[in-house]
């Protein structure tokens, strides 16, 4: 009987040990399985193989190492480690492949954008030529004035759909002039500032003024002006140019102003 006591102790401690090792074993097995399925997924994806072959190979090597180690006793930490590395390599391969696909798509889209930009420019020029005579009278406020803020051009409310940010086709001529001017003066930059009258909600007015200014900026960018040359600001109902009591005054207050920098590209301070 006595002889069995140390034996029992031995069995107990062996059980304890294996219990502890067992949970580690389990987590390293899980890591290994996760790494295996990640690797399987990238290995079978031809896009990933094409754009990140090195990372896929490394994912496979690390996985093989984890696999080998898993047959040795007492190496669960190493198994977890190499499974972790394999998993990471698979994830990196996946990301690099997505990046590559995005870049390929971007190159194609960029060509499409240039083609459309050219088509739009031609179409606008054509429509300006066709309409130029009566457009001259229709143009309401294309006024450039020298103020303490520098050269300022005002786009009147009539160029926008009522209460909306969309530019009407009748704004084409003004916009083209602007583009032409900016192309002839490549160092000049502009700040596009939107304003509204004082009717309606203050916040909505601020939002609308900004959206209108942004619309003008977007059109300039679409026609080939570098977005770095354009700042956009919404002022809402601040800085009215006329009283808001009459319909005429309000119409004057609803406007987009384009502030030009000097020839060196220096803009006056924002309001």
């Amino acid at each position: 009987m006595n002889a069995r006591i140390p034996l029992l102790g031995g069995v107990l401690s062996a059980l304890l040990l294996s219990g502890c090792a067992g949970s580690q074993q389990q987590s390293s097995n899980e890591a290994l399985e996760a790494a295996r399925s990640s690797f399987q997924a990238v290995k079978e994806n031809s896009d990933v193989l094409r754009s990140a072959p090195k990372d896929v190979i490394r994912a496979g090597e690390s996985l093989a190492r984890a696999d080998r180690l898993s047959s040795y006793w007492g190496s669960t930490d190493d198994v977890s480690h190499y499974a972790y590395l394999s998993q990471r390599y698979s994830e990196i391969a996946g990301q690099n492949s997505a990046l590559n696909l995005n870049q390929e798509r971007a190159a194609k889209l960029e060509l499409e954008r240039q083609r459309l930009q050219l088509a739009l420019r031609e179409a606008k020029l054509l429509s300006v030529q066709e309409q130029s005579n009566w457009l001259e009278e229709q143009m309401v406020s294309l006024a450039t004035s020298e103020t303490e803020r520098g050269l300022v051009m005002t786009l009147g409310d009539v160029l926008f759909d009522a209460g909306q940010a969309n530019l009407k086709a009748s704004a084409n001529r003004t916009v083209l002039k602007l583009v032409q001017f900016l192309q002839l003066n490549p160092r000049r930059v502009v700040r596009i500032e939107g304003y509204t009258d004082s009717r309606g909600d203050k916040l909505e007015n601020l939002e609308l003024s900004r959206a209108r200014a942004q619309t003008v900026a977007d059109v300039l960018i679409d026609l080939g002006i570098d977005s770095k040359r354009i700042e956009v600001q919404g002022h809402g109902e601040s800085f009215p140019v006329a009283e808001n009591a009459s319909a005429m005054g309000r119409a004057q207050n609803r406007r987009v102003e384009i502030v030009f920098s000097d020839e060196q590209g220096r803009l006056g301070l924002a309001r």
């Binding site: 995005n102 971007a106 889209l109 954008r113 679409d222």
Partner: peptide
């Protein structure tokens, strides 16, 4: 980060193309 940036660039390009199409 690089993938996210390229995704943002794609979205911006798509926006521009949609705007151009709409204007045309």
């Amino acid at each position: 980060v690089l993938t996210q940036k390229s995704q943002d660039q794609l979205n911006e390009l798509n926006n521009r193309i949609n705007r151009l199409r709409k204007q045309l």
